[in-house]
């Protein structure tokens, strides 16, 4: 029994140094040299070098003149990237249906003439609460509202959405999506 204690303790310390200090340090140094942008959070800056967000982290939009992203369940406010969280609402929980109904009403109130069924990703919360994307269908659904609020031609927005649609990676992996923050920043730059 006792004869195993010494190797157990020393080996634990050595392997801790190796896997808990040296390994993460080597990864950090290599990552910062090879992929500095990605390693630091894919941050966006404006012309003057000021931070304006991360391309991978969604933001909350509620004004009709912006495209809206996925609903978010983070607390205390939507898209809090300091505390990621999903809703964890089960499929048969009445609270889920209530929340979805309220979201449908908000969408309809902002665009009363739109009778089309709403793409499901636009009324359900994402897993992380920080999803940067919506489906192309969810972007198209919002084009008329945004066009009206900004006095732009819908065709122009169609082209913009299309330009911001990311197709499947390598042609077949994942799902197509539109990065909402990128799209909205491009919208603000139209004028």
């Amino acid at each position: 029994m006792i004869k195993h204690l010494k190797p157990a303790m020393i080996l634990f310390v050595l392997l801790s140094v190796l896997t808990g200090f040296i390994y993460p340090a080597v990864v950090t140094v290599l990552a910062q040299i090879i992929f500095p942008e990605q390693a630091n959070g894919s941050l966006l800056t404006d012309g003057k070098g000021k931070l304006t967000g991360s391309i991978l982290i969604g933001q909350s939009f509620s004004s009709p003149k912006y495209f809206w992203g996925r609903p978010s369940a983070t607390a205390p406010f939507a898209y809090n990237a300091g505390a990621s969280s999903g809703s964890n609402l089960g499929p048969t929980n009445p609270a889920l249906v209530d929340a979805v109904k309220a979201r449908i009403e908000t969408l309809k109130a902002a665009d009363p003439k739109n009778e089309a069924p709403i793409p499901v990703d636009l009324i359900t919360t994402s897993g992380s609460g920080l999803d940067p994307h919506i489906s192309p269908a969810a972007a198209n659904y919002q084009i008329n509202r945004v066009a009206k609020a900004r006095n732009l031609k819908p065709e122009k927005l169609h082209a913009l959405v299309e330009a911001h649609t990311e197709s499947r990676q390598l042609g077949f992996l994942g799902e197509p999506g539109v990065n909402v923050l990128k799209l909205n920043l491009a919208l603000d730059n139209i004028h």
Partner: peptide, 20 residues
Amino acid sequence: IDQTTTSEMQAGGNMEGKET
């Protein structure tokens, strides 16, 4: 609500708690 999948436009299905 439109939950159908139209391959290139949306995944559809049970999207609560899933990432786009």
